[in-house]
Design a protein around this nucleic acid. Structure first.
Lengths: 121, 121
DNA sequence: TCAGTGTTTAGATGAACGTCGAAACACGGT
DNA sequence: ACCGTGTTTCGACGTTCATCTAAACACTGA
């Protein structure tokens, strides 16, 4: 991920700083892009079915697509939908080998999430 | 029956599990409760505004509620709504001191999320 | 080539979410 | 006690999401 430097995208119009209170020293948030990217990864995990899928992949480094459906108790179509969301978020990857599709996690992306949640950086 | 000729028939190992394919060794997912709890925490972070709020709290160990609204570019009502979601998820806490309310993260909960994302346990 | 099985996509539907303005609540100062 | 300001709740609106069935696609084996 890009360096999460502080500093908003300069809304150069009008005021350089909004009205501030004297309650505390102002703190700036991360950029819109970084926040959206991170929120997208969190959103990909914001469902019990997808958390279960990830947990299976964290325990065994490779899982057949046919295994997920029974374990999470959803239809094959719904399961495939969840797998696609996790793929689109860049958290997992799957490759077809003949009849079956095997999925695995992308460790780097999980590391990115963990780092974003780490205090003090 | 085991005295039959060698052949391509299935191995007679008894399996009490539901219909399984022979594509892989079955992997079990985490419990419903654990998955729901984790998904709830991820859902609390599945929005750029809330990610920004958390990033501010990770950089400064205490932030006044009045600071968030300007930094994330949302109305006070919307900001309060997001703060409530983060509170309900147990990720942050806020206490009123006179006029202002000061928020801070709950480090243990962030650690729980990080641990859940860690490979190999 | 065809039939059977595993996987994904398309369309539809009800629930949950993000956002706002307006109103209510909490507190400090006059 | 009242007024002004910071914060939260309420009600409403449009959007997004999770889920299913049905259909399409991918591959194997005969």
């Amino acid at each position: 991920m890009s360096t999460a430097t502080i500093g908003p995208e300069a809304p150069a119009t009008a005021r350089p700083l909004p009205v501030l209170n004297d309650c505390c020293t102002p703190t700036s948030a991360m950029s819109d892009d970084d926040a959206s990217l991170l929120a997208g990864m969190f959103k990909a995990l914001a469902d019990p079915a997808r958390v279960k899928i990830l947990s299976m992949l964290l325990n065994a480094d490779e899982v057949c697509a046919c295994d997920f459906s029974a374990s999470i108790g959803k239809t094959a179509a719904t399961t495939s939908h969840h797998l696609k969301l996790l793929r689109d978020a860049g958290l997992i990857t799957g490759d077809r080998r003949g009849t079956w599709v095997y999925y695995r996690v992308i460790p780097e992306r999980l590391t990115a999430i963990r780092d974003a949640l780490t205090l003090g950086q």
